[in-house]
């Protein structure tokens, strides 16, 4: 840890030395947050309520990889596929059996939010009961290679995180902008009633939204798991990063969520220049509250 009372010149050199490493760390954190935030924002745009079980999808996927990859010894790419599928399927089921019926009963966004809190609690307890609440590593099935670029060290896993996150985000944006499905989702997000009247099967669209959103969140959870490991309590961590990134980026705007995610990644990592590193997790919340007070609509306007 840096002592802030140290000579300024020394501090300056030190900052210069760790600058490339901080950039790399920020990009990796941002890539993980991006998947979580983009998918959270996607589901929020379509359903208009804060789904507090979003981080749980990510944790489900990471534990599926732990089980199929490490316990059963399936090849990594297969385990990742199963993990993503697990998250996507559980998201679809939760919508079908909990959120959808609640909406049919005319539940307000608050009721849905509280119900999602219930889902969050249930998933957390089930995972803790099956796997225990201690920390598990899932990456030791892969050989990690170490790279160095401009004095910043990173692993092959981290390179994968960056690339996969970028590819998935871009692919997702292309689907949103260029396909009929993207337009249908935009229509449902805009006005569910009118979409129904013009003949869109909104239930089916919602199911797809949850499937895709859950899957992308799942991938985020898996990548985070490969980087650091998994623990049931990560659900809150994932959820909060997703919510904060989506809100400060501009809720309802997919590019905003991406922007917000990388912004948090950079602020958390560069924050240690001025604040001791153990405050890293608190920084994002201070940022959220500052944004909620001064610019509640976020950086980018809703699309």
């Amino acid at each position: 840890m840096i002592k802030r009372s140290a000579a300024p010149l020394y501090l300056f050199e030190y900052m210069f030395d760790i600058f490339p490493q901080l950039v790399v760390n920020s990009l990796i954190a941002g890539s993980i947050y991006a998947l979580l935030a983009v998918s959270f924002n996607f589901i929020f745009s379509a359903t208009r309520f804060f789904n507090l079980a979003h981080g749980s999808f990510a944790v489900i996927a990471a534990y599926a990889v732990f089980y199929f990859g490490r316990e059963l010894g399936l090849p990594t790419f297969l385990a990742v596929g199963i993990g993503v599928l697990f998250a996507a399927t559980s998201a679809i089921l939760i919508d079908r059996f909990i959120f959808h019926p609640l909406k049919m009963r005319g539940g307000s966004p608050m009721i849905l939010l509280v119900a999602s809190l219930g889902v969050f609690t249930v998933i957390n307890s089930i995972i803790s009961m099956i796997f225990g609440s201690s920390f598990k590593t899932i990456s030791n099935t892969i050989d990690k290679q170490y790279f160095e670029l401009f004095g910043a060290a990173f692993t092959s896993v981290q390179l994968w995180i960056f690339i996969l996150s970028l590819v998935v985000s871009i692919g997702f944006f292309i689907i949103l902008e260029k396909t009929i499905f993207g337009k249908v989702v935009a229509a449902v997000s805009d006005d569910e009633e009118v979409s129904k009247i013009v003949g869109i099967d909104t239930d089916k669209v919602m199911a797809k939204v949850f499937f895709i959103g859950g899957g992308i969140a799942g991938l985020g959870g898996i990548l985070a798991g490969f980087d650091t490991g998994v623990q049931p309590s990560l659900d809150m961590f994932f959820l909060l990063k997703a919510v904060i990134a989506a809100i400060i980026g501009g809720i309802g705007n997919p590019y905003g969520a991406l922007l917000g995610a990388y912004l948090i990644g950079f602020l958390e990592n560069f924050g240690i220049w001025v604040i001791p590193s153990e405050w890293k997790d608190t920084i994002a919340f201070v940022l959220l509250i500052v944004f909620l007070i001064f610019r509640p609509s976020g950086i980018l306007k809703r699309k």
Binding site: L117, G118, T121, V122, N124, S128, M129
Partner: peptide, 8 residues
């Protein structure tokens, strides 16, 4: 926790 979540 689970009963609580389901109850909620």
């Amino acid at each position: 926790q689970m009963i609580y979540g389901l109850g909620l």
